[in-house]
């Protein structure tokens, strides 16, 4: 499993849904799980993005699928960054 950071921004449509049914947020997590990835942590953000999610997914293809699936609903736009824990990163730099 690899780690991904998913930044999401709501559209007007998405904001309306959020106000009417805040529980929808949790339902999205279950749908992501059904597609083979898992949300490990999730925060609401003030500023450039509305939410930041940390995901575990097997590969980039899974993430691509999730992005298209969730993006097609028109409730938000997603940006996903492949990530690795910082320790692993410094190890990698050192071992070069």
């Amino acid at each position: 499993m690899a780690t991904y950071i998913m930044l999401s921004t709501l559209t007007d449509e998405g904001r309306k849904t959020l106000k009417e049914r805040p529980e929808r947020l949790q339902e999205v997590n279950r749908e992501i799980e059904a597609m083979g990835a898992r949300v490990t942590q999730q925060f609401a953000v003030l500023g450039g993005y509305d939410f930041i999610n940390i995901l575990d997914a097997p590969d980039n293809e899974t993430i691509a699928r999730i992005s298209v699936e969730l993006g097609s609903r028109g409730t938000g736009t997603l940006t996903t960054l492949p990530a690795m824990p910082i320790d692993q990163f410094t190890q990698m730099l050192k071992s070069r």
Binding site: Q41, I54, T80, L81, A83, M84, I86
Partner: peptide, 13 residues
Amino acid sequence: TKQFATIGEYDFV
């Protein structure tokens, strides 16, 4: 609490 090196728009989150 958590730190990641990322590929894309940013280098670290």
